[in-house]
Amino acid sequence: MHHFRCTLAGVNGVELFLLGRVLMKIGEEALPEPPGGAAKYAGSTRTVLVVASDIAAHPDSAVGEIAARTRLPQSQVSTAVARLREAGSVQTVPDPADRRRMLVRQAVETSERVARVRATGITEALAAALGTDDPARLREVTAALEMLAHALTPTPAAPPRA
């Protein structure tokens, strides 16, 4: 694994981008396997996570709007929305301004699948990425990740009230 500089002044945009990719891969490894096995959804976990993040930040969006913001093909966004709806993470509602169009928002209730994904820890995936299961090292890196998540992750929008 590539070791990144420890001072912010020494990190450039490319290194930050590469770190983000490493963190995404660790996150993907930490996620529990979807129902039906990983092969059923091969290659789409990242797309689903990007779409879920956009829906959290922009509730009541149409698939075309999500596609435009994420720069993903509309077909991939539609597939991701279907997966998220199947998992109970989002719901679709008719657009009051145009009943032919569906809007996507986070589900009001937390499904069993969503609760399971949220409860899954990162210890095993982080240990594999670090190449060590040393508890002190894992605590140190986990604390750094928690600090970054707290400082940089936007607060997700609250689910709409019924």
Rank of each mutant, 00 (worst) to 15 (best):
E86R: 03
V51P: 12
S111A: 06
P73A: 08
A39L: 15
L18I: 03
E28V: 06
G121Y: 11
G88M: 06
V108H: 14
R85G: 05
R85Y: 05
T120P: 02
V90R: 01
Q106A: 11
S61I: 03
S89Y: 10
L23M: 05
D95S: 05
V90C: 09
V114Y: 01
P96M: 12
P59C: 02
A67L: 07
A42K: 15
P96E: 12
E112S: 03
A52Q: 06
L72K: 12
L23A: 08
L23G: 04
I55G: 14
L31I: 04
P73E: 00
M102F: 07
R46T: 14
V22H: 08
E29Y: 11
Y41E: 15
S44R: 14
I66F: 09
R85M: 03
V22Q: 06
L23D: 00
Q76W: 04
T45E: 11
T79D: 02
Y41T: 15
R85K: 05
V104W: 04
A119G: 04
R69Q: 05
I66G: 08
G37L: 14
A38N: 09
L23T: 07
P96N: 12
G36K: 13
T47R: 09
P73L: 07
G43W: 12
Q91W: 00
Q74Y: 09
A62Y: 01
M102E: 09
A57V: 01
T110C: 04
L16C: 11
S75R: 09
S111D: 02
V51D: 15
M24P: 00
K40C: 14
V104F: 12
Y41K: 15
A62P: 00
S111Y: 10
G43L: 15
E109D: 12
I66R: 07
A42N: 13
R71C: 09
E33M: 10
F17M: 00
E65V: 03
E86C: 02
P34W: 11
